[in-house]
Amino acid sequence: MLGSIAVRPFEEIDLDWLVEAHATLYARDEGFDDSFGPLVETILKRFLLDHDPTREQGWVADRDGHRLGSIFCVQGPQTNWAKLRLFLVMPQARGFGLGQHLLDTCLGYARGVGYDGLTLWTHKSHVAACALYEKNGFALEAEKPAQSFGCDLIEQTYKIVF
């Protein structure tokens, strides 16, 4: 299945789909409230307005006009560190290597533009994603309980040094 999926740059036309996909899946699978979708929308609109195309990129996985996932590499708060954002693989595309392919795309890009490393923020409940990060050399840097999006969560920060 992976061979028939194209990974292309994120475009403004993808915004509504990506907001809806995040909001719907996180509500269904994690119990997130309706504050999550607007956060994703804010992140994407900010990206479209002021990202640095020489150092930041977003990608969408697409098969025959059907979007199946996304991942973004953006400048982090630390000098010369990137941040992975909005990593999503739709349920129907899981188990075929798409998550690894998207992660490889992001990591390759971050290395290629000269970042020293990459950080990401996630939740402990994302077991498959956390296993993928660890398999690819990310180390768990911190975790803490939090109340976010109407849920009790364990927030985690992962980091990889290049």
Rank of each mutant, 00 (worst) to 15 (best):
M1F: 06
G3W: 04
S4F: 11
S4C: 10
S4W: 05
I5A: 04
A6D: 14
V7L: 13
P9Q: 11
E11F: 05
E11I: 12
E11T: 12
E12Q: 12
I13F: 08
L15W: 00
W17Y: 08
L18N: 08
L18G: 00
L18E: 08
V19L: 07
V19K: 03
A21D: 02
Y26F: 15
R28N: 13
R28M: 14
E30W: 04
G31K: 06
G31R: 09
G31L: 11
F32C: 10
S35E: 12
S35R: 12
S35W: 02
G37H: 05
L39R: 12
L39P: 03
E41L: 10
T42H: 12
T42P: 03
I43S: 12
R46N: 15
R46C: 08
F47K: 09
F47T: 07
L48N: 08
L49G: 13
H51S: 10
P53W: 02
P53Q: 06
E56A: 06
E56M: 06
G58K: 05
W59E: 03
W59D: 07
W59C: 07
W59P: 01
V60G: 02
H66V: 15
H66W: 01
H66A: 14
L68N: 08
S70T: 14
F72L: 13
F72R: 08
C73G: 01
V74F: 09
T79Y: 14
T79I: 15
W81Q: 14
A82V: 05
K83D: 15
K83I: 13
R85W: 07
L86Y: 10
L88M: 10
M90G: 11
Q92K: 13
Q92M: 14
A93K: 07
A93F: 07
A93Y: 05
R94P: 06
G95S: 03
G97H: 03
L98Q: 04
Q100N: 13
H101F: 09
L102N: 03
L102D: 06
C106Y: 07
C106S: 13
C106H: 07
C106D: 08
C106W: 09
L107M: 14
G108V: 09
G108C: 09
A110T: 10
A110F: 09
G112R: 04
G112Y: 04
G114S: 06
Y115P: 01
G117D: 02
G117E: 01
G117Q: 02
T119F: 12
T119K: 13
W121D: 11
W121T: 06
H123R: 05
S125V: 01
H126Y: 09
H126E: 07
H126R: 13
A128I: 12
A129D: 00
A129G: 00
C130R: 14
C130Q: 03
Y133L: 01
E134A: 12
N136R: 13
N136K: 12
G137Y: 02
F138W: 05
A139E: 05
A139P: 00
L140T: 00
E141D: 06
A142P: 01
A142R: 01
A142D: 05
F149Y: 15
F149S: 02
G150H: 02
D152A: 11
D152T: 10
I154W: 00
Q156N: 02
Q156K: 09
T157A: 10
Y158P: 06
V161P: 00
F162Y: 12
F162G: 04
